[in-house]
């Protein structure tokens, strides 16, 4: 593989979105879906084969690894790391690999935290705020609409500002909270990347199904290379799954890291 993107998907105990993330990256990188349904006890259902011309090289990284090679992208996938016991993401942030994630984020690597990954990023201090229990205290598994608030990030450049996309959510703790001052900063610095909205793009205040402040679904850090979001872009990248609105996140990363799929 030349001139492509090197991506890592971190596997914590009970990361359960790890395979979905890897599969989406492989699909978008032009590689056949390997069909892995598990990272470390692989049952090989491979059918499509692997395309050596793939633009994305994806590998799993075990959470106990304390030194990893440099990656262009590190994904903290969805899941219930350590059972979400104590508090979501609160134990995972102490995994040995997290020091490496922080180091590589500082180095400029892109870090994408999806759902539980977002929770871990806030616990690790890579993103501000916290994810509280959903407003109605129920787990929510359904599709939501999001408005792209900032298309000038490495995660959203394939979308247009104001574009409305549909993605699934599946979480019990997605109620984003930040104090007023922090919220103002996020807004002023354009760091609110996705907001929950209605299908036609309106965002009446309070539409977030989980009660998130300012209807925030995803934010980036000050440098713009760390994104955390509650919805699951990796689950909607093929028409057979009901849509491909999630592809933009991964295509944006390819654009940002290695000039996109086309070049």
């Amino acid at each position: 593989m030349m001139g492509g993107m090197k991506a890592a998907v971190v596997v914590f105990p009970d990361s359960n979105g790890d395979c979905d993330a890897k599969r989406a990256l492989e699909k978008i990188g032009g590689q056949g879906v390997s069909g892995d349904v598990s990272p470390l006890s692989k049952i090989d259902f491979s059918g499509d084969g692997v395309n050596p011309l793939s633009k994305i090289d994806v590998r799993f990284v075990w959470h106990k690894e304390s030194s990893i090679e440099d990656f262009d992208l590190i994904v903290l996938p969805g899941g219930f790391t350590f059972g979400d016991y104590l508090r979501t993401g609160a134990i995972a942030r102490y995994s040995p690999v997290m020091k490496e994630v922080v180091r590589q984020a500082k180095r400029g690597a892109k870090v994408l935290g999806i759902c539980n990954g977002f929770q871990i990023l806030t616990e690790a201090g890579l993103l501000p705020g916290a994810l509280l229990r959903n407003r109605d205290l129920l787990f929510l598994g359904r599709d939501v609409w999001l408005r792209v608030e900032n298309d000038a990030t490495p995660f959203t450049n394939a979308y247009a500002k104001g574009q409305v996309i549909r993605l699934p959510i599946a979480h019990g703790d997605g109620n984003y909270f930040i104090d007023d001052e922090g919220y103002k900063r996020l807004e002023e610095e354009g760091r609110i990347v996705f907001r929950y909205c209605s299908p036609d793009g309106d965002a009446p205040s309070g539409i977030a199904p989980n009660g998130a402040k300012g209807d925030i679904a995803g934010i980036v850090n000050e440098e713009g290379n760390v994104l955390g979001l509650m919805p699951h872009p990796e689950r909607l990248v093929e028409p057979i799954l009901g849509g491909r609105d999630g592809r933009g996140v991964f295509e944006s990363l390819l654009n940002a890291v290695c000039g996109g799929l086309k070049r």
């Binding site: 359960n16 979105g17 395979c19 979905d20 599969r23 989406a24 349904v37 969805g78 129920l138 787990f139 929510l140 598994g141 359904r142 699934p168 599946a170 699951h232 990796e234 689950r235 093929e238 057979i240 799954l241 009901g242």
Partner: peptide, 16 residues
């Protein structure tokens, strides 16, 4: 009921 369940994880569910 079913919105309290994660029905899409695994990216194999094509009819939810």
């Amino acid at each position: 009921v079913y919105e309290q369940y994660d029905s899409t994880i695994g990216t194999n569910t094509v009819v939810r």
